[in-house]
Design a protein around this nucleic acid. Structure first.
Lengths: 178, 178
DNA sequence: CCGAACATGTAACCTGTTACATGATTAC
DNA sequence: GTAATCATGTAACAGGTTACATGTTCGG
């Protein structure tokens, strides 16, 4: 079994021509839809593990900075396919900070909720803009990731807008009750 | 700054009357929308940290198994509110195993993709059923979580169904080209 | 020639998981 | 009385983050 990060690394090497550890790191760092920072302390040890498991082959380039060209072995391709097709893993709940907090918002007083929801909506719209601009110059793999990221943000935005409507209705009722 | 798990624990104690470490663990274990397992090795140390930070107050009950009744301090409520309102945290990309894999599916051959997409659709539908049944006997906090979980699964399902349609069209074109 | 980008790696730390260990209470 | 559930906790391990440390290549 490989971890989520290891799967993502195999993907970068196998399907996105990110053939050095450094480029894999950059890909994680620059992707607005990626969960990982691409820190050296995670990527280099992960690649080491994948080499030990014989899923990645590292061949030295002839430059003095020790650049290593990485590619998937046959076992690597097989492991990546298994990882990608793992249905229980595919449908598992990820760690969603929005979902985790959404229940708490309901407990706040109406005007605080409203203020928060409105600021949230603006920020989500900005995030969607960013993702849409990013989307343009990306390969197929990254584009799919970005599109799903946009759909997630739109789900959040719709949720937030519905909540704003509800709160408006609630406020109107409060006023008419007075 | 508190971690995501610590925020979730404060929520359970503050808003869901899960007043013992054990009950907090159960809540995580039983929730189909939770990312965490609620393992003893994470919950007990996390609660220890929160007590040290003066965000939780633990008072001994008078039973012989050392049950500790937990409640939020004023600082705890404040920290939880800060955590819940943190806009950058709210809109951050979580770790979504579906999103992470979706790009790879496109690289497979059409019939393998089709088979996978169809199995995926069935599993997602089952997951949605499960979440909908669970939804009924839950308090407001948990219901919001579950509803968002359902919407995420529906997003995945729609994505998968659209893909199945595309693949059908692709297959028809292949046949008519022959 | 000098700064930015490329490239590799380690060490300390944090926080999660699994597995182990123990005991009390309750329902049948 | 005994099995399930309630309840607390630790130890070994795994896999991330941040910060540190080093050296190369390339563009202006």
């Amino acid at each position: 079994m490989i971890t989520e990060l290891e799967g993502a690394i195999l993907t970068e090497i196998g399907y996105r021509q990110k053939r050095t550890a450094f480029k894999v790191r950059q890909a994680f760092k620059n992707s607005p839809s990626s969960y990982w920072q691409g820190s050296a302390g995670s990527v280099y040890p992960a690649i080491k593990r994948l080499i030990e498991k014989n899923l990645i082959l590292a061949s030295a380039s002839n430059d003095a900075r020790g650049t290593q060209s990485l590619q998937l072995t046959d076992d690597g391709h097989a492991a990546l396919t298994d990882w990608a097709m793992d249905i229980p893993a595919c449908i598992a709940m990820g760690a969603d900070p929005f979902r985790l907090r959404a229940g708490l918002w309901q407990a706040m007083d109406v005007s605080a909720q409203m203020k928060h929801a409105e600021r949230l909506a603006v920020s989500i719209e900005q995030a969607i803009c960013l993702l849409e601009n990013y989307l343009n110059n990306q390969d197929q793999y990254e584009a799919v990731q970005a599109k799903l990221a946009i759909e997630l943000q739109q789900l959040r935005l719709n949720w937030t807008k519905r909540r704003i409507e509800e709160l408006h209705a609630l406020k109107r009722n409060q006023i008419s009750a007075n």
